[in-house]
Structure formats: structure tokens, C-alpha cells
Amino acid sequence: MRSSTLCVLVAVAAATLPGTAAAATARIPCTPPGPHTTDTTSLTLVSAGGSPCTVLRLIAGLNLGSEAQGHFHVFGPNGEIATSADKFWSSGEQYRVEVGQVTGGSHLWCVDFWTPANSKHGETNCVGF
């Protein structure tokens, strides 16, 4: 028997033997990246863990020491998620959004901050998860 045939037989046997399916479907860790900052904003993802990996909440804010008038625009792999109220945001204040969307490991979750004149303040802040 050739080695390529043997490999196929071993793989088929492992997939069909009792007790081996659990090893084949082991959970992949669902750990979101830590806080991500750009020149103007910070972005944190909160995950439920488990399978499927789900983003529960997204937390956006201006960087420490920053304050500005405007609103946050939050979007992900399925498009717009939420837009905050247009107001004066102070340093350390957070905008929290309940998301409840499944993520696939390389999806982008992003936030922009916009001024009342509809001008983007700083660069877009995106996290891959």
C-alpha cells in the first residue's frame, strides 16, 4: 500500500472512530484583541467567548486628554452598527454599543469620530477579530 493511500485511510478512520470527533472539533479560543488606539480614538471589543465567537459589545472613546464635540460612528463586517448622539465628549467618557454579532476571526470592527460639520476627526480605528 502506498503512503498516500495509508494517510487517507488513517484520516477516515480517525474521523469515524468513537471518541475522535471531539478532537477534530476542538474549540478555537475566542479572545478579542486588547484596546486599540489611533491618534484620536480608542476601541475595545467584548466577546462572549465560545463557539461561535460573538462580539457582545463595542466600547469607543476619545483618547485620554482629548475632548471634542461630535458623534461616534460604529460599523462592522455587516455594515453600520450604531451612531452616538452628537454631543460634547470628554476624556475618559465611553460610548458602549451592544453588538451581538458572530465574528469570523478576521472581520473588521471600526469606529470613526465626526464633528458637527460632518468632518471626520482623525483616522478610522479598526480592529480585526
Results as ranks from 00 to 15, higher is better:
M1N: 01
M1H: 01
R2K: 08
S3R: 10
S3M: 09
S3Y: 00
S3A: 14
T5Y: 00
L6K: 03
C7M: 05
C7L: 07
C7G: 07
V8Y: 13
V10D: 02
V12D: 09
A13E: 00
A14H: 02
A14Y: 06
A15V: 06
A15F: 00
A15S: 08
T16M: 11
L17Q: 04
L17I: 10
G19S: 04
G19V: 05
G19D: 06
T20R: 01
A21M: 13
A21Y: 03
A21K: 14
A22V: 15
A23Y: 09
A24P: 00
A24Q: 10
P29F: 00
P29C: 07
C30Q: 02
T31W: 03
T31I: 15
P33R: 07
P33S: 08
G34N: 10
P35H: 03
P35E: 01
T37L: 03
T37A: 13
D39F: 05
T40K: 06
T41M: 11
L43F: 04
L43P: 01
L43T: 01
L43I: 11
T44K: 01
L45M: 14
L45D: 04
L45C: 01
A48D: 06
G49V: 11
G50P: 08
S51Q: 04
P52R: 05
P52H: 01
T54D: 13
T54A: 14
T54P: 04
T54V: 15
L58Q: 07
L58N: 06
I59V: 15
L62S: 10
N63R: 15
N63Y: 15
N63S: 12
G65F: 08
E67W: 12
E67P: 08
E67Y: 06
E67Q: 15
G70L: 09
G70S: 03
H71K: 00
F72H: 13
F72P: 13
H73P: 00
V74N: 01
V74L: 05
F75S: 08
P77C: 09
N78V: 03
E80N: 03
E80A: 12
E80W: 02
I81F: 02
I81L: 13
I81N: 04
T83M: 14
T83V: 13
S84H: 04
D86A: 14
D86K: 14
K87H: 11
F88T: 08
F88H: 15
F88Y: 05
W89T: 08
W89E: 05
W89R: 10
S90M: 11
S91G: 08
G92Y: 09
E93T: 12
E93M: 01
E93A: 13
Y95P: 07
G100L: 14
G100S: 15
V102D: 06
G104H: 12
S106K: 14
H107Q: 13
H107F: 11
L108I: 02
W109T: 09
W109A: 04
C110R: 01
D112P: 02
D112T: 13
W114K: 04
T115G: 13
P116T: 12
A117R: 04
N118Q: 03
K120T: 00
K120C: 09
G122K: 05
T124A: 11
T124H: 02
T124K: 03
N125D: 14
N125R: 14
